[in-house]
Write a protein that binds this DNA or RNA. Structure first.
Lengths: 225, 225
DNA sequence: TTATAAAGTTAGATTAATCTAACAAATTTG
DNA sequence: CAAATTTGTTAGATTAATCTAACTTTATAA
């Protein structure tokens, strides 16, 4: 069983690998705010547990087992964030710190219940995908609403930025995550768009707003569900 | 800030004090499943943090600060148990282990939200009181329904035993925590009772059931709310 | 009331996670 | 390509939480 500290190292390695490919010790150390020798000795001990492939002076990689474990922690983190926001009415800005703690709770059931209560979400509110139980990251296929062509139906799934004001604005227009939007027209002039959705047959959104709304173009598969 | 380990020592001391008065080192050690020297050195370090009064060979006591901290951890534990059962639909038997972990989460808001969502409960499902934010234990005034006289109005607040079968039985009769019951009559013969409550003007409950239902006799104050 | 048992203490070792100082390897660059 | 810089490693120390072994104090009881 990994300690919370070890779990943080695995998480950092997973995130670095998914954004940079090659992982160096110093990147790991600076990400975790520890000294190089500390990271070095921890990496050796993670190797002993078969979670990390380590050779002197070589870049670091996670083993298959390490990836699975890391993904499960990130899954717990992102589920927690969503749970705090949607079930417990936290603000987006407040959730990270708490989620950093709750992600280390050992209880499959606790997180499966969160998952159920949230309706098995595929991504967190910032558009970062939530790994499945198999540790696989569904590749995110979000695009900003601003890049969608007129006539298309899309699902609003995430926000690229979620300040309190922006959220209030969305509330005032009846916009919430999960909603299906149909693009009616776009305006070359200022990149504003007119869209329709539940109870809103014609709503104009500024270009700035459209860039911040992350959507998924509906496929046959996603529409069927 | 107390580590999770220190918090467990404080919690054990609080619980022992509330059930035994005098606390000896060996009681503490055996409660926490650690050796005497381990408990001894931890107690010294808790003394340094001003949470425990310690003198060689003397019984242990918590300082005022220590009591407050211990009560806050127990509060978090019991709120978590209730939250897991009522919001996340865990079974009573499953919650303890998870609550032992979650009680160490540092986030006042997280637990205040639980408290709100649960309607500021005064006791956990086993009738153990939940300390308030001030660390005070409201003295529990629960009595088994079986000891209530006919004509009295009571509030169902806890269960002395909560097996799955018992809970199913309660569900089948529309009985849930928080409900107000009026005792219509009691039967000398088998200690069964007839009570009325929402949508159930006349329900007979066996003596066994009545012993397991913990209720609070309504006062003017509690009824007003 | 002294001998034995129980409870508490001290000393010293271990493991995990961290650090600084000193050194070595690899990489960058003049 | 050799010098300088960056990166990685080793050695050795520290703190928290734990242990066993040995010893002391307090309590029990013959």
């Amino acid at each position: 069983m990994a300690s919370p500290t070890e779990e943080n190292y695995l998480k950092a390695l997973f995130n670095l690998a998914n954004s940079q490919g090659e992982i160096t010790l110093s990147e790991l150390a600076s990400r975790l705010q520890v000294s190089l020798p500390t990271a070095n000795s921890m990496v050796k001990s993670l190797q002993k547990s078969q979670w990390v492939n380590y050779e002197k002076y070589k870049p670091l990689t996670l083993t298959a087992e390490g990836q699975l474990l890391a993904a499960s922690i990130i899954r717990k983190h992102r589920l927690t964030e969503l749970f705090l926001v949607h079930v417990m009415k936290f603000g987006w800005e407040e959730v990270h710190e708490v989620a950093e703690q709750i992600e280390h709770i050992h209880s499959p059931k606790f997180f499966e219940r969160m998952d159920e209560m949230l309706g098995h979400p595929a991504a967190d509110p910032h558009g970062s995908p939530i790994p499945g139980l198999d540790g696989k990251l569904q590749q995110q296929s979000y695009v900003p609403l601003s890049s969608v062509l007129p006539g298309q139906k899309v699902e609003l799934l995430a926000l690229s930025n979620s300040s309190a004001e922006f959220l209030e604005f969305l509330n005032s227009r009846g916009l919430s995550l999960g909603l299906t939007l149909t693009v009616i027209s776009t305006e070359r002039f200022d990149h504003s768009m007119v869209v329709s959705y539940t109870d809103h047959p014609r709503e104009a959104l500024s270009g700035k707003v459209c860039e911040r709304l992350l959507v998924c173009v509906q496929t046959a598969a996603s529409a069927a569900h």
